[in-house]
């Protein structure tokens, strides 16, 4: 218990240190007109570097400040506050609230990952049970596995002609291979004893699959799913960016196009939070099907 408390304390301290350092490094002094001639000040105002305030002084132009250097934690916080306030607001075709963007990304990710998992587990079991088939197909899996899922995108876009489905398919491609390879391995290396027991008990094909083979290979399959999960999560962000599909990945790109760096940092943080939430959900599910030998 004490160690957990210590770890929490250290985490908190590290975060505070990081935020303070970030704040200090990105801090800019207020504009000081001393040392500038009247002409220079006019040029700067004309260029939009500074603006005149109501009381006759000059300050840095807040609009231009947004893209100058890296924004500090306070401006990111301010950005987050406004985004979260408008989380459920749809302002235009490409300007949906952050809640919608998260929903789109999670749906896209979920559809691609689930479809890939079902296909990969079914094919994996088939290959795992048939050594000849496995040896015949394995070279192709080995070639296809290392291809970045994004490399498929032009071909997929050309084939399905719809960016919405292309994004799902990119996630699908990212999630397919690790699960396929590990499922085939897990089923293939299932202890022969379990199959012997199933054979003696004359279990039907269906029972053999669901009572013995799948639960027996479950820990290995879950490991494959975990790798697939990570690679699908990595693929969904650039897929959205390249295809212009609304989502948290696209948010980061939109904010970059807006030259709103605070917005980019906010989008990165949202991607992180979505990933953590999905991952913990996955781990809960994984815990249900694994066993100790």
């Amino acid at each position: 218990m004490a160690t957990k408390k210590d770890a929490l304390l250290i985490s908190g301290t590290l975060l505070t240190l990081f935020l303070v350092a970030w704040h200090l490094f990105t801090l800019r002094q207020d504009f000081d007109p001393k040392g500038f001639t009247e002409d220079q000040l006019m040029t700067m105002e004309f260029n939009g570097d500074i603006v005149r305030t109501s009381d006759g002084g000059y300050v840095w132009n807040p609009e231009k400040e947004k893209v100058k250097g890296v924004p500090g934690p306070l401006s990111v916080l301010e950005k987050a506050r406004t985004e979260l306030e408008e989380a459920f607001v749809i302002k235009g075709t490409n300007d949906h609230g952050i809640a919608y963007l998260v929903l789109y990304t999670v749906t896209r990710f979920g559809a691609g990952f689930l479809a890939a998992s079902v296909v990969a587990i079914m094919l994996g079991v088939l290959l795992g049970l048939n050594k000849v088939l496995f040896q015949a197909v394995n070279p192709y899996i080995q070639i296809l596995k290392p291809i970045s899922p994004l490399a498929w995108m032009p071909l997929l876009l050309y084939t399905v002609k719809d960016p919405k489905w292309t994004a799902v398919l990119v996630v699908f491609m990212a999630a397919l291979w690790p699960t396929l390879a590990t499922t085939a391995f897990g089923v293939n290396s299932l202890r022969k004893d379990y199959l012997h027991v199933a054979a003696i008990l004359q279990l039907s094909w269906f029972k053999r699959l669901f009572k013995v083979i799948l639960p027996g290979a479950a820990p290995t399959i879950v490991n494959g799913l975990r790798i697939s999960f990570g690679s699908a999560l990595v693929a969904v962000v650039p897929a959205e960016m390249l295809l212009g599909e609304l989502g948290v990945g696209y948010l980061s790109w939109i904010e970059w196009n807006n030259l709103d760096i605070a917005g980019v940092i906010f989008a990165i943080l949202v991607v992180g939070v979505v990933g953590v939430v999905l991952d913990s959900g996955f781990n809960k599910l994984a815990g249900l099907v694994t066993y100790q030998e």
Partner: peptide
């Protein structure tokens, strides 16, 4: 029915 040396119980 076989009684196996390594028990062969389903661990799950």
């Amino acid at each position: 029915m076989v009684v196996f040396q390594n028990f062969s119980l389903m661990p799950w």
